[in-house]
């Protein structure tokens, strides 16, 4: 029975499809160590020269810094305004609750290219394109939905009677939130923050419209670089970014794992 359902043709098929899925990443990792700049695969020889060049590329280093600060600011702001909204949606019965919830998720239904242009129209007259303020505002609406979603998930799975117990033991609504609710939803809130950070850090299309000479994010730098030139320096940079992504996944896993320990 088992073997009839999973014969070797099946395995070959799945392996080939996995290869297709992972091919661009594998290739990028491969040529980042290439000794030539011909972008041929398999690589001609091993070297770390592209990583060395990376450390001298001021555009990338500045872009990385801008992206890091922007993503940090976006994550913080999205948490600060998203968690209270999640609280209202998950904890209170009021008219228009469904509509409010749908409204906060709606930015995900607008193509980034459209949102980017729209933001340009608002930010340009204010002269805040190419500033941190402009970039953070631009990334806010696409990250808030994720923060709200993860935070309200945690709130909905939270054992409500823990909060009630705190109330009967003499804690006011605010103290209950600070001492019981917040510690219990912390993993979900943190996960939402990390997701917001990653989305902002990777965002390229909206940023294309709102960056400027004063501040350009890393994905935009990469985009323009690839548009005009192609050499393995981008591959080396990609490998560094992939490593950072993996680091974040490990952090999330640790946090979620921690949550399971606490339960």
């Amino acid at each position: 029975m088992q073997s009839r359902l999973k014969g070797w043709p099946n395995r070959v098929l799945v392996t080939v499809l996995y290869l297709f899925l992972l091919a661009p990443i594998l290739v990028v990792v491969g040529i980042s160590f290439d000794s030539e700049s011909s972008m041929a695969f398999p690589p001609q020889g091993f070297s770390l020269q592209w990583y060395e060049k990376l450390t001298q590329n001021q555009d990338f280093i500045t872009g990385f810094k801008v992206s890091l600060i922007t993503a940090g600011g976006v994550a913080l702001l999205a948490l600060l305004i998203g968690v209270p909204v999640a609280l209202a949606i998950a904890r209170f019965e009021f008219r228009g609750r469904e509509a409010l919830s749908a409204f906060f998720l709606s930015p995900l239904l607008v193509p980034a290219i459209v949102l980017g242009l729209a933001l340009l129209l608002v930010l340009a007259p204010l002269r805040i394109t190419g500033t941190y303020a402009g970039l953070i505002v631009a990334h806010l609406s696409i990250t808030i939905p994720y923060v709200i979603r993860t935070a309200s998930m945690s709130l909905l799975t939270l054992n409500r009677s823990c909060e009630e117990a705190a109330r009967t033991l003499g804690a006011s609504a605010w103290v209950t939130f600070r001492k019981v609710t917040l510690p219990l939803i912390a993993p979900g809130v943190l996960a939402g923050g990390v997701i917001a950070f990653l989305i902002s850090f990777d965002e390229a299309v909206i940023s294309l419209f709102v960056v400027g000479p004063r501040a350009t994010t890393l994905p935009v730098e990469i985009f323009h670089y690839v548009e005009t030139r192609t050499d393995p320096q981008i591959a080396a940079l990609s490998v560094v970014l992939i490593a950072i992504s993996i680091l974040f996944v490990v952090i999330i896993e640790r946090v979620m794992g921690l949550k399971r320990v606490l339960r």
Binding site: S161, E164, A165, T168, G170, A171
Partner: peptide, 17 residues
């Protein structure tokens, strides 16, 4: 609630994890 001084034991205990 928090000013009543009642001691409540919940069905699922509601202990703070």
């Amino acid at each position: 609630v928090h000013q009543r001084g009642m001691g409540l034991v919940f069905q699922n205990y509601a202990l703070f994890p």
